[in-house]
Design a protein around this nucleic acid. Sequence first.
DNA 1: GGTGCCTATACATACGTATTCAGCTGCCAT
DNA 2: ATGGCAGCTGAATACGTATGTATAGGCACC
Lengths: 338, 338
Amino acid sequence: MQRRPTSFDLAALAGVSQPTVSRALSGNPSVSAETRARVLAAAEQLNYKVDKNASGLRRKHSRTLALLFFEEGPDESALLNPFYLSMLGPMVRCCAAHGYDLLISTQQLSSDWHVDYEDSRKADGIVLLGYGDYLEYRPRLEKLVGQGTHFVRWGAGGDSELGATIGSDNEQGGFDATQHLLASGRRAIAFLGTASSAFPEFLDRWRGYCRALRAAGLVPDEALRVDAEPSEASGRAALGQLIARGIAFDAIFAASDMTAIGAMHGLEKIGRRIPEDVAVVGFDDISAARLASPPLTTVTQDPRGAAQALVEALIEAVEAGSTRSRRLPVRLTVRESA
Amino acid sequence: MQRRPTSFDLAALAGVSQPTVSRALSGNPSVSAETRARVLAAAEQLNYKVDKNASGLRRKHSRTLALLFFEEGPDESALLNPFYLSMLGPMVRCCAAHGYDLLISTQQLSSDWHVDYEDSRKADGIVLLGYGDYLEYRPRLEKLVGQGTHFVRWGAGGDSELGATIGSDNEQGGFDATQHLLASGRRAIAFLGTASSAFPEFLDRWRGYCRALRAAGLVPDEALRVDAEPSEASGRAALGQLIARGIAFDAIFAASDMTAIGAMHGLEKIGRRIPEDVAVVGFDDISAARLASPPLTTVTQDPRGAAQALVEALIEAVEAGSTRSRRLPVRLTVRESA
DNA sequence: GGTGCCTATACATACGTATTCAGCTGCCAT
DNA sequence: ATGGCAGCTGAATACGTATGTATAGGCACC
């Protein structure tokens, strides 16, 4: 393993100077076609690769984006969110298509704010995943803005002071899901979800649910609303609570698939058939939704579109200096549970 | 957003020279405690961060590892593998603990071999995920070895000529799963899996299955073995095939959870109870296994341990020049399906 | 009091690339 | 023939850090 070839070696081989090599490789139009060809041939021969450290030092950017997952701890990490995980592939591909590399990291709430990537020039900008609209984050995001760091957040959006936000149209998703249930004749539709600030999306889904009901001339009934977090256990518990209330229902709209699957298990246990007795619709389209029995009808967020929107917004922020928030469309995926 | 502070600015503020700043920050023992304190205070004040491009240029490494997912295309990517995805968090944390950053990328088989990260000094070493033991990869891996690139592969291992390999003890997992079924009195245990080179792990799982049978004085029956890929549809189809053969069975060991879940759906459809009529054991412990109904007994690979083993092996390769392959223990997770 | 040694710091330089500026060549118009 | 101009290329330099070598001061020892 001998010394790496440098642009000087390349220049010597191609019979030109080092600056010409640099220009040739970066596609500068001032270098003649034949010179460029000679340089490229030499590069091929020496298996020359630009040293990105030197390049990044000289230019002022690294052509690298950082992907930052929020986490409370190993067991409470945005890296466990299946939707985020499904965005990973598309993000990597989208970055590659734009000539960027992707750095991945996590950020603990408890730790100091060490978003060094942009500070230390390892990344030109940051994608933030798992940062809800918690107030706790505000000062950190504000500091980021203050530093002039380029970043884009996945979230419910709204607050354009804190950088651009990309998120799904949760309200419309809630509307579509509910309308689907209404269209199949259901009238007593329970809503399983929480309005906790930890899941701001759930509130929008609830709003869509209400809008659909009202559009059908119905009035949302608080008795049909049960608090539930996105977990199987919580879904089962919520169903138990619903039953305990003794209120009749012929459908369930769960604000997350995990909750929906838990509720389905609960229904199964008490012998209520799905969808004959109770139709169920979830939200997220996690992989287990398709594998559930019966397969779960759910609101699908498009991971590819989301990934692309995030990456392209960030690149725009990096290269053009600013970008805009976006709300992405969702799609109802009808399977057998409703 | 003014100019970034450099180590010279820091030196001026602390009243020392730039080299002293560099030494103070890197913990060089030759700098006195009081000087170091002054430098650190100045760094805090200026919010100084080492420029990793310049640092990487001067040193010969970037303290960055690249994580490379193999993919045939967007729909056939190692980034879709839930086990790999579950390693992500632990890998990130493990890298951080060792002071490394993690770059994530994909590699298409069809494209040229562009593992530029190490070539271009963006990464010091590479973790390869999703590279089975396909012969097609050999030349590429050999080239990597030839270049002196440091890398570690997740896989069945064995071929130590092609770099270190870290993998689960699939044979033992197959043995444990089968023994568990035997212990509960099952005697006719079907094996659902394929020996295709695309899934070399399956072959080891099959071997473990055979060893358990023989240890119990039974002889593996080829009639109980059905080819199946790791997908729900394939699992359902495999069960159909098994039924069509008209052979009696009281248990199923599927070489993957996806297959097992498909088979469970098939059993449900024809009214066979799980586990009363047929016990089912899977392999992988994907998230859907716990959510299945009944929850699936399966062989759990430890993503944290795997991630740690991969990262630490790679770091050892990078820093010490070489490393060794390892086979990681697996654990049977008993739920309700068997 | 000079020599030698040790500690802490400063000086100078190298890493490999991209860019600014200047220079060279040849061609066209005057 | 000469000035100007365009099209390419080369020389010099800057980017910010880390490190090898040199230097200044302090102390012990003979």
